[in-house]
Design a protein around this nucleic acid. Structure first.
Lengths: 120, 120
DNA sequence: AGTCTTATATAAGACCTTTATGCATCTGCG
DNA sequence: CGCAGATGCATAAAGGTCTTATATAAGACT
């Protein structure tokens, strides 16, 4: 599974159904690339297309139950992997990490904002 | 410039000349992929091949002056970008980050070790 | 010398991306 | 109302980077 595919599924999970162009912008790829990517996800049964009744041009991409389950499984695997790593740190180190979490979150948000402003 | 190319240049800068197979393992790609990648870097003038006199099968890949300069420029750009972001944090947040740095370094090292053990 | 292993190169194909383009639908203005 | 331009998506062609399979050359060991 490509990085972009995984990120797209995560985005759908976070924000609900989106149109193709939206997803392309969100993941920083072109619209044709997202069209192809959505097709492969659809063929894998992880998403489905729905027509927007208010604008017949747009197709809304929705997570299927299988897709949502895939995202949860993947996320849990990541959480577990990091939990195992953090288990090997000392108590002081874990405390320092916990204390830095708000700053790290802010930094991540600033970085994603900066990346959007500068083109990708 | 591909992610793998940049990582390869950084590795060469950190550890000095390396053989193709070494680089492939270090970057987690196959040897033919690294052969092609080194050729493009060579054509760009960023690295050069040298023959190992003690084993005529191996070709040692070395950073050229242009390659070293490229790595430095790229690194400085990254440092500057993060400096700008950190400038927007509060004093407390910066302190928390600084206090967490040793733990983050340990975590990164554990993670890279885990990744090597598990295949990539 | 003969055989196995190691280091690199080459070739063919898969996958993901981009630009260019086409078609359908919507929107706004005369 | 009707048509011109804008918008949303799909398709096609081409490029880049990767993989597997295979070839070639050199070292190592009996």
């Amino acid at each position: 599974m490509s990085l972009t595919s995984a990120a797209t599924l995560a985005t759908l999970d976070k924000t609900g159904p989106r149109r193709i162009t939206d997803l392309a912008v969100a993941e920083g790829v072109t619209q044709p690339a997202m069209t192809v990517l959505v097709r492969t996800l659809e063929e894998s049964g992880l998403v489905e297309r729905k027509k927007d009744p208010s604008d017949k041009r747009v197709t809304l991409v929705c997570l299927t139950e299988a897709g949502a389950s895939y995202v949860r499984t993947r996320r849990q695997a990541g959480v577990d992997a990091y939990a195992r790593l953090i288990d090997e740190l000392t108590g002081d180190e874990v405390e320092a990490l916990a204390a830095a979490l708000p700053a790290l979150l802010r930094l991540a948000e600033l970085e994603s904002r900066a990346r959007q402003e500068s083109g990708r």
